[in-house]
Amino acid sequence: MLIRKRKDWSLIAGGVALLLGGCAPRGERGRELTEVAARDASADAALGVVRALVEAFNRHDPERMAALVHEDFEYLSVDGSKVSVDAVGREALKQSMAGYFASVRDVESVIEHTTITGSYVAFRERVSWTGKSGRRSQAALGVYEVRDGLVKRVWYYPAVEQSKASP
């Protein structure tokens, strides 16, 4: 009886080893799994940079925002077939944001509905603040290009005013 139990355990252990070995990445399938894991890690890293930039925005911290963008960063506004350049470089972003935060003291942003394709993070951003007539909110589509762990370029599409009932 004792011998049989040892034999059963060795069969079970062998089966587990076979199962686990079958799951280990090998050959083309293994390369595919490794590439998928690398893409997932890269997508997570890109989204992390964008979230850090939005957190710095919500803290009204232009210095931190500038530290999260490339030296030759570009902020672009898209309106139909027209694209305008609103800021180029870290210093321009820092100055622009300092002025903005001075004039809109309680502005805050929330990222919604993200999608990531390669080095591009796209999302709907909802921004709210208190205006002369009370609390206001608007949403816009944004696309951030992340290169080497920093935001290289940002494109924003026209903002749409949101009511309290808007999704």
Rank of each mutant, 00 (worst) to 15 (best):
L18N: 04
L93Y: 10
A41F: 13
R126C: 11
E125N: 15
K132L: 09
V146R: 02
E71L: 12
V151I: 13
A92Q: 10
L53M: 07
W9T: 05
I3C: 05
V16D: 08
S77M: 14
L68S: 05
D86F: 08
W9C: 07
V151N: 07
K132I: 09
G134A: 12
R31V: 00
T34A: 15
S133V: 07
L76C: 08
C23V: 06
R51G: 06
V154Y: 01
G27I: 01
G48E: 06
E28A: 04
V50K: 03
G27N: 02
A92Y: 09
M1R: 12
Y156R: 13
A165D: 13
V16A: 15
E145M: 04
G99F: 08
A37T: 07
E112W: 05
H60E: 07
A87F: 04
P25Q: 09
Y144K: 04
S42M: 10
A13D: 03
M65K: 05
A43Q: 03
E112R: 15
D40G: 05
A52E: 05
E145Y: 02
L33H: 04
E145Q: 13
V104R: 09
T117W: 00
E108A: 10
R39E: 15
L76G: 05
D86S: 14
L150S: 06
W129K: 05
R136P: 00
F101Q: 02
D61N: 09
H113E: 13
K82N: 12
Q138V: 06
H113C: 02
K94W: 05
